[in-house]
């Protein structure tokens, strides 16, 4: 009996020591909650949530200052994931979700003023003063921030069409209703 108690106590002490050591050794830098929330946000950096980017919004959520349903690019999916992470109720999205689009510059009209470059949060626009500008479509997040600053209105958002490499299998139709 005594040996059993001693053994158990020994194990408890050893495990405690290991846990204590691990807590010190693997201490996470920065605020892990903000990082976790930021990892869920889509990184469009559009500011539609009312914050100047995804990270600030993540910080605000972590502090409890912002609701979880303010990010339209993240969609209902994003709200669901945030709710899961934070252990709160899922809420309907506080905006209309939009189809994914990328910006397109009409290069015949561009006067090369560089204003769009200054607006782009991910440096996806190429150009120099008085030169025609163009968008690197693969890096564009579709935030629309470059559209408003353009003095000649030559930037438009082009909705991405579904093509073969981006096609997804559809949810199988539930045939019970169909056949009945």
């Amino acid at each position: 009996m005594l040996t059993a108690i001693l053994v158990m106590a020994g194990i408890a002490i050893v495990l405690g020591a290991v846990l204590g050591y691990a807590a010190l050794r693997y201490k996470v830098e920065g605020d892990p909650l903000v990082e976790k929330i930021d990892a869920i946000l889509p990184q469009t950096q559009c500011g539609q949530c009312g914050y100047p980017g995804c990270k600030p919004y993540a910080t605000a959520i972590a502090k409890g200052e912002a609701d979880i349903n303010k990010c339209p690019p993240g969609g209902e999916e994003g709200v669901k994931k945030l709710a899961e992470l934070l252990g709160v109720e899922v809420k309907p999205l506080d905006a209309e979700p939009k189809p994914k689009a990328v910006a397109f510059i009409d290069e015949n009209l561009c006067i090369g003023c560089t204003l769009c470059i200054q607006a782009c949060p991910v440096d996806a626009i190429l150009g120099a003063a008085k030169q025609m500008h163009t968008i690197i479509a693969s890096e564009c997040t579709g935030c629309e921030l470059c559209v408003a600053p353009c003095p000649v209105d030559c930037i438009s958002m082009v909705v991405l069409k579904e093509d073969l490499p981006h096609w997804k299998w559809k949810y199988p139709v539930f045939r019970i209703k169909q056949a009945a």
Partner: peptide, 18 residues
Amino acid sequence: EKHAADIARERHEFRLFR
């Protein structure tokens, strides 16, 4: 999507740094 978001985050952070 996750991969694209990671790249966007990196680019955004680099821009802030720049």
